[in-house]
C-alpha cells in the first residue's frame, strides 16, 4: 500500500503552521525524522510527509501544546506507554458513539474480548486496527479473524514497546507479521505489502478521537 504523501508547502498551507514551527518540532523530535521523505520534484528537491500521519500529529501537537511545554510533549509522544491510556476503558456504546469502531467489527469481535462489558485500551487498539483494514476493504472477514487472534495473542509480548503490523499477500495467501519498530522488512518480488500499521499510529488515531 502506497501511503498518500503531502508536500511541505501543502502541509504549511493546510495547517497554518510556519517553517519555524515545523523545524522547532522536528528539533524537539515531535515529528520523527523518518517522516521527512525527500523526493526530487520538478522544482528541485522537495520534502514530503505521510499525509494522514503528519496531519494527525500536527493536530495533536496544536491541541496539546497549550497545556504542556514542547519538551513534555516530546516525552509524551515518544513514550507510547504513557501516551496510551493504561486505565482507559470504554463500553461498546462509547466506541460506537465516538466512531472509533464500526458496528460490524464490534458485532463480530466485540463479545470475544470483553463479554459485553468494558474494553481495555489494548483491546480497543486491536479493534481499531482490524476495523481500519476492514473498512478500507483490504482484508476479508476470515482474515480479520486471523488478525484479531494474532494481535490478542501476541501484542503483550512487546511489553509496551512499539510494534508494527505488516499485512502481506502472495499468490492469494495472506500473512500477518508483527515486528518491533523500527523494522525494515524486505519481501521477495511476488509479495505485495497490503498494509502497514504501527502502534504509534493507532494510538494517535485513537487519541485524536478521544480528545
Amino acid at each position: 500500500m502506497e501511503e498518500d504523501l503531502i508536500s511541505k508547502k501543502e502541509l504549511l498551507e493546510l495547517t497554518g503552521i510556519s517553517y519555524g514551527q515545523l523545524y522547532r518540532w522536528k528539533r524537539k523530535q515531535l515529528i520523527p525524522e523518518e517522516w521527512f521523505i525527500r523526493k526530487s520534484a520538478f522544482t528541485g528537491q522537495e520534502t514530503f510527509f505521510p499525509k494522514e500521519r503528519i496531519l494527525r500529529r500536527v493536530h495533536n501537537i496544536i491541541n496539546m501544546k497549550g497545556d504542556l511545554s514542547l519538551d513534555e510533549l516530546a516525552e509524551k509522544l515518544a513514550d507510547t506507554t504513557s501516551y496510551a491510556h493504561p486505565h482507559l476503558s470504554l463500553s461498546a456504546a462509547q466506541l460506537l458513539e465516538r466512531n472509533i469502531v464500526s458496528l460490524t467489527t464490534l458485532n463480530r469481535f466485540g463479545d470475544a474480548t470483553a463479554g459485553g462489558k468494558k474494553y481495555t485500551f489494548e483491546q480497543v487498539v486491536h479493534l481499531v486496527a482490524v476495523d481500519g483494514l476492514l473498512s478500507k476493504g483490504e482484508m476479508n472477514l476470515d482474515e480479520a479473524d486471523g488478525l484479531f487472534r494474532t494481535l490478542t495473542k501476541n501484542t503483550a509480548k512487546f511489553a509496551g514497546k512499539n510494534w508494527e503490523l505488516f499485512f502481506i499477500r502472495k499468490m492469494g495467501a495472506s500473512f500477518f507479521l508483527l515486528a518491533a519498530t523500527p523494522a525494515d522488512l524486505i519481501f521477495d518480488d511476488g509479495t505485495r505489502l497490503v498494509s502497514r500499521l504501527s502502534l504509534t499510529d493507532l494510538v494517535e488515531q485513537l487519541n485524536g478521537k478521544l480528545n
Partner: peptide, 10 residues
Amino acid sequence: CSAAEVGGST
C-alpha cells in the same frame, strides 16, 4: 561556509 539545508524561524 556551507550547509546542505537550513531551517528555522529567524
